[in-house]
Design a protein around this nucleic acid. Sequence first.
DNA 1: ACTGCAACTTGCACTGACTGCAAGAATAGT
DNA 2: ACTATTCTTGCAGTCAGTGCAAGTTGCAGT
Lengths: 201, 201
Amino acid sequence: MPTSTPPPNARERQKRERRLALIEAAQRLVGERGLDDVTVEEISSAAGLSTRTFFNYFDSKDDAVLGIQEIDLDAEVRARFVSGGPSGRMMTDLEALVAGFLRNAAPNIEQGERAMRLMMSEPRLVQRHIAWHQRVVGELEALLSERREARPSPVDDDTIGMVAGLLMRSSALAWARSGYEGDAAAHLPEAVAQLRLLLDD
Amino acid sequence: MPTSTPPPNARERQKRERRLALIEAAQRLVGERGLDDVTVEEISSAAGLSTRTFFNYFDSKDDAVLGIQEIDLDAEVRARFVSGGPSGRMMTDLEALVAGFLRNAAPNIEQGERAMRLMMSEPRLVQRHIAWHQRVVGELEALLSERREARPSPVDDDTIGMVAGLLMRSSALAWARSGYEGDAAAHLPEAVAQLRLLLDD
DNA sequence: ACTGCAACTTGCACTGACTGCAAGAATAGT
DNA sequence: ACTATTCTTGCAGTCAGTGCAAGTTGCAGT
C-alpha cells in the first residue's frame, strides 16, 4: 500500500496533509471512544479545520475513519487488463487487477491497518468499506466493457465484479489474520486459494 | 418467497399489516419521486402512522424501502445444515442454506421485486441491501460454528460467509435479469454456474 | 513586487434521519 | 369489568450533512 507521489504544489500538498490529519484524528478519537461517541465537529477540531471543510475532504464521517480515498489504479495495470492481458485468462487477470486496486486502498499502511482494526468492532464501518468496494467494482465494470473488445468472457460482468469484491475483502481479512504482515495485496493468493478450496468441496 | 403464517392475535396481525403498509408507501413514493425526495414523515403519513412509530418497525428509511425483515430460516433447513447435511459437501450444503435464506428475504414477491427495481437506480439501497446480506452472513457463521462439530471444513468461515453473500446477490440479479420469473431462489443454480465458470477461466 | 483570478475555508442557517422520554390509548388476560 | 402489558404518539432534541456567500490563500502572469 504505497502512498502516491508527493503532489507538486503547495495547494496539493496542503490538501494531502489535511486529509491525513483528518484521518488520523478520526481514527484516534474513534479508537478511544467508539464511532458513535465522536462527532464530526470533534474530528475537524482535532485536525485544526472546520466542520464545513471536513466535508470538502470526505463524503461522510465513516469515510474519514476508514481513510477512504479516490480510486486510483496504476495506468499500466489498467492498460494491460483492457487489452486482454496479462495472461488472457479472466480469473488470473482479475487477480492482477484486484492486486492493483488493493495497493492503493488507503493513504498508507498504518492508516489502513488502523481502519481494519476499527472495523472489527464497528459493523457500520464494515458496511461502508464494502460500499467502497462496490465503487471499485463499478470502475472494474467499465474496464470489463473495454476489455470485451479484445477478449470476450463467457462470464457475466456482475459475477466478475462480485468476485473481485470478495477477493478484496478476503485479502484484507487474511492480512488482519496474519497480524498485518506486509500489505493486503500480499495475501491475495491465500484468498484465491480459499475460494477454490470451497468450490472444490 | 412465501409469506410466513398469519400471526395468532390482533396485535401481531396489526403489526404485520402496518409493516406491509409502510413498505408499500415507501416503495410507491420512492418509485414516484426518488429516494432523497421522500421523507420518513411522508412515508409514515401515507401509511397512517407517526414518524416515531415508523422507527418502531424499521431501523432506517432505506430498510422500509427495501422491505427488510428479520432473518427467518426454516427450522428444518437449519437443523439439517448444522448436523452436517444435507449432502455432506460444504458447497452443496451452502447452496441449500442460501436458498433457505432467499426464500424469506422479503415479505412477499411483489415487494421483493419492487425493491430490486428501486435498487437499480439508487446505489444507497444496494449498499443497504448488501448490509442486510452481511447480517445473514453473521447468522450463517453461527451455524457454521455449530456444524463444525459434525463436519469440519478446511475452508475458513469468512470465505464461506462471503461466498454465501455473493450467491445471494448474484441470485437476486439473475432473478432481475429474467424479468422476475419465479423467485430469487430459483435462480441460485445459475449464479453458482457463473461462479464456477469464472473460476475455470 | 504587484495584480487579478481561481480555489479553498469558514460561518451560518437549515433539513431531515433518527432517538429518548412520558402520557395516553389499545390489547390481552383473568 | 378490571388490571397489566404493550404500543402509539407528540415532543424536544442531537447530529450528520448541505447550500450559500463572504473572506482568505495560493498561483500565474506581468
